[in-house]
Design a protein around this nucleic acid. Structure first.
Length: 511
RNA sequence: GCGGGUGUAGCUCAGUGGUAGAGCUUCACGUUGCCAACGUGAUUGUCGUCGGUUCGAAUCCGAUCACCCGCUCCA
């Protein structure tokens, strides 16, 4: 498949998605709420197809991957073990210059006892020595004139005179902010610290927490995987770019447990596998990229992480992260729960905590990428001839052309597979036959029946929602039981017997 | 979180203090023998929300919410 050379504007896409029922703002009648979206009749079909295709590719067709559906709210200790609470319950601040990040409660400040306009020097816990040197060097002052106060006692207005722990410049520290992005709730009717729980910020921890049970019942040997699709919640500071960064979203995650030492080859294997899948669902190679994390960008426990990126109209952004996480998660859960999460290798009789490769994909981001990729406006010459791709931002067709908006979804993920039309609605025989064909096909695929208005208008309406095939019942049908099948992309038609329809469609739309 | 912009019918938008509008869409009927045809008719709005000024507010003022752009953030 060729990359779409049409550049959709996010406004035009959002407008179509609302008009045709892909995506609505949540609780719109109350003014909406930032970072939450609803999927309409077409959007829900699109997402179902994405999830089904992923499940087939990652679970169904692999004997060594099994599924799981864990609960959204889990024991709060799960998030202590995973590090989601510990790292982020405290206010953090950043240094703009060194990119360092500090816990505000661990930073102290050397402040002049009397001169409020003097420079102040931040330092980390008890390591006051560098700050004392800076007092002499930068402020030409005497440490005896300075007192040590907690950073949290310094008003934010005075941060422009505050020198960060690892710089010599004042004013590089940001305001301390609470960085816990987990949604908090309470289990049971009484709100109190004992009943605090969290909406999961990722589905992965549900898999790690059930590793023992799943392994015990599934008769799997390493390497094997546990996969899960489900909602996750992150209280993002700033949701942006339509549905791209939402506070409630759906993940498709695989934890693939492996023998230590095979991390690199297994990681590369899954990156390749996943890229093949993206191509299959309609995201062309030319628009996909690997972002390979190295050095500081890599979590301390990870040996590799590759983001799979797509060229969105608003920039190249992550659809999926594939991380080699070592045995960090299982080790953490083993320690925090006190339950063994080891694997016994039957042949070598060795016990070890498995390492894991984690491909973690965002359903909503993939849906958005597919919409961006599929959307295009074409200019069709009225007298026949070459179809042009509309110029970016100019949707009105030039003289002699008419515009066609079309979603060129890969057939396997299109919300409707087939539309069925009687050529005319006021001829009972045509309508009756069309209903018959529709009901036959609708048993097998999501189909759409329409008899309203001119046939051309009905074709174009289906183009705009990406239905790949249109079956039309005309007067010849009544004579010889043949129909025309119209292709969304070429707009060309072939005539075939109704008896051959199912085979033909199955070939065109299979996952 | 900061700065700027926007908010009127399902969509795109006009309307600068005095009767709420257009085009498209949708629906019905008629017409229509394959690519957004035509005719007739119909539905659609607390003018984002709340408050203030005014005899009177879509219009002026304030707050708030949502969306967009740029910074910031993104375990």
């Amino acid at each position: 498949m060729k990359p779409n050379d049409y550049h959709v504007s996010m406004d035009a896409l959002a407008s179509l998605c609302k008009r045709r029922g892909f995506i609505f703002q949540t609780s719109e009648i109350y003014g909406g709420i930032n970072g939450f979206w609803d999927y309409g009749p077409l959007g829900v079909e699109l997402k179902r197809n994405i999830k089904e295709s992923w499940w087939k590719s990652v679970v169904q067709t692999r004997e060594n991957v099994v599924g799981l559906d864990s609960s959204i709210i889990m024991h709060p200790k799960v998030w202590e073990a995973s590090g989601h609470i510990g790292n982020f319950k405290d206010p953090m601040l950043d240094c703009r210059e060194t990119k360092g990040r500090y816990r505000a409660d661990q930073i102290s400040v050397l402040k002049h006892k009397t001169d409020d306009s003097a420079l102040m020097f931040a330092f980390h816990e008890e390591a006051s020595e560098p700050a004392e040197k800076k007092v002499k060097k930068l402020a030409k002052g005497d440490v005896a004139d300075y007192e040590t106060v907690p950073l949290l006692d310094i008003p934010v207005e005075n941060y422009d005179r505050l020198v960060g722990p690892e710089t010599n410049e004042p004013g590089t520290l940001t305001e301390p902010r609470a960085f816990n992005l987990m949604f908090k709730t309470f289990v049971g009717p009484v709100e109190g610290s004992a009943s605090v729980a969290y909406l999961r910020p990722e589905t992965a921890q549900g898999i790690f927490a059930q590793f023992g049970n799943v392994h015990a019942v599934s008769r799997q040997k390493i390497p094997f995987g546990i996969a899960q699709i489900g909602k996750a919640f992150r209280n993002e500071i700033n949701p942006r770019n339509y549905t791209f960064r939402s506070r409630e979203f759906e993940q498709m995650e695989l934890e693939f447990f492996i023998e230590p030492g095979t991390d690199a080859e297994q990681h590369e294997y899954w990156v390749t596998e996943r890229l093949k899948w993206y191509e299959k669902v309609g995201l062309p190679e030319g628009r996909m990229h690997r972002d390979i994390h190295e050095g500081d960008a890599l979590a301390h426990y990870a040996s590799a992480c590759t983001d799979i990126m797509y060229d969105f109209p608003f920039g190249t952004q992550e659809l999926e992260g594939i991380a080699a996480r070592g045995n960090f998660d299982l080790t953490q859960h083993q320690e925090c729960s006190g339950k063994k999460l080891e694997y016994l290798d039957d042949e070598s009789k060795e016990r070890y905590i498995p390492h894991v490769i984690e491909p973690s994909a965002g359903v909503d981001r993939i849906a958005l990428a597919l919409l961006c990729e599929a959307y295009r406006v074409e200019w069709i010459p009225k007298g026949g001839g070459e179809v042009l791709t509309a110029e970016p931002g100019v949707e009105r067709a030039p003289e002699g052309y008419e515009a066609r908006t079309v979603l060129r979804f890969a057939p396997c993920i299109a919300p409707y597979k087939v539309a069925v039309f009687p050529l005319l609605k006021n001829k009972e025989e045509l309508v009756g036959k069309a209903r018959e064909v529709f009901e036959q096909l609708n048993e097998r695929w999501t189909c759409f029946y329409d008899h309203a208005g001119a046939i051309g208008r009905r074709y174009r309406r289906q183009d705009e929602i990406g239905t790949p095939l249109g079956v039309t019942i005309d007067f010849d049908t009544l004579e010889d039981d043949t129909v025309t099948v119209r292709d969304r992309d070429t707009m060309e038609q072939v005539r075939m017997p109704i008896s051959e329809l199912e085979t033909y469609i199955a070939e065109r739309v299979r996952f």
